[in-house]
């Protein structure tokens, strides 16, 4: 698989959230404002790129029978590192993301890419796949975060746009996440149909 394709496919064509529909739990939970969405995207990108790189590096020495537990060890190591680092250097963001940082360990995107891509491809391709998938995840998560924050709280990245009293609070509550994801998926499908 070409390097460009490894990088490119995760962004729109196989966007993990809007296309493959995996890793939806953190997407629903932390997309209530743009800052949380951005922080979560950065943490997931770090874990995904590092775990893809390491899994590709060790793929020839990893026995097939125990590859899944080994993937989990690799992933949980990087999740714990990002947990410590965020707690030490960005305590406010860490408090806002709460339990969803440790839960990156069970984010299907990461184990999915380790199993479906990094275990079968060279290191450079796997890193690029990690970057592309992270960008796709970030694109979806931040779009949802911005839409929900603007409509639900009348601000974007914490900067007030209009009086929050006229904002639709439902958009920052759980139903708002489902509505926004549904509308974005429909829009992406429509767009793709037109292109074809």
């Amino acid at each position: 698989m070409s390097l460009w394709k490894s990088f490119n496919q995760g962004i729109i064509k196989e966007n993990p959230v809007l296309r493959l529909m995996i890793g939806l739990c953190p997407v629903l939970a932390v997309s209530n404002n743009a800052i949380n969405a951005l922080g979560m995207s950065v943490a997931v990108a770090f874990v995904l790129i590092c775990s893809n790189a390491v899994v590709a590096m060790i793929r020839k020495t990893t026995p097939d029978e125990i590859r899944i537990p080994i993937f989990i060890i690799v992933i949980s190591t990087f999740v714990t590192i990002s947990d410590y680092v965020m707690n030490a250097f960005t305590p406010d963001l860490y408090a806002a993301l709460g339990v969803f940082v440790p839960l990156i360990v069970v984010n299907c995107i990461i184990l999915g890419r380790a199993e479906a891509f990094a275990y079968r491809n060279p290191v450079l391709n796997s890193i690029l796949d990690g970057v592309g998938m992270s960008l796709g995840f970030a694109l979806a998560l931040i779009s949802i975060g911005v839409i929900r924050e603007v409509l639900g709280a009348g601000s974007v990245f914490g900067i007030a746009l209009f009086n929050p009293a006229v904002a639709a609070t439902i958009m920052v509550l759980p139903p708002g996440a489902f509505i926004t994801i549904g509308v974005l998926m429909a829009a992406l499908n429509k767009f793709e149909n037109k292109v074809q």
């Binding site: 026995p63 029978e65 125990i66 537990p69 080994i70 060890i73 690799v74 949980s76 190591t77 714990t80 590192i81 410590y84 680092v85 707690n87 030490a88 250097f89």
Partner: peptide, 27 residues
């Protein structure tokens, strides 16, 4: 297989211990 898994765990724990050492005072 158990030995291989154990080796991975040891490497991972060692790495985490180093990160912990640097971040814990700050936390």
């Amino acid at each position: 297989l158990g030995i291989i898994l154990a080796v991975f765990c040891v490497i991972s724990a060692g790495g985490l211990a180093i990160v912990y050492m640097y971040t814990q005072p700050k936390i």
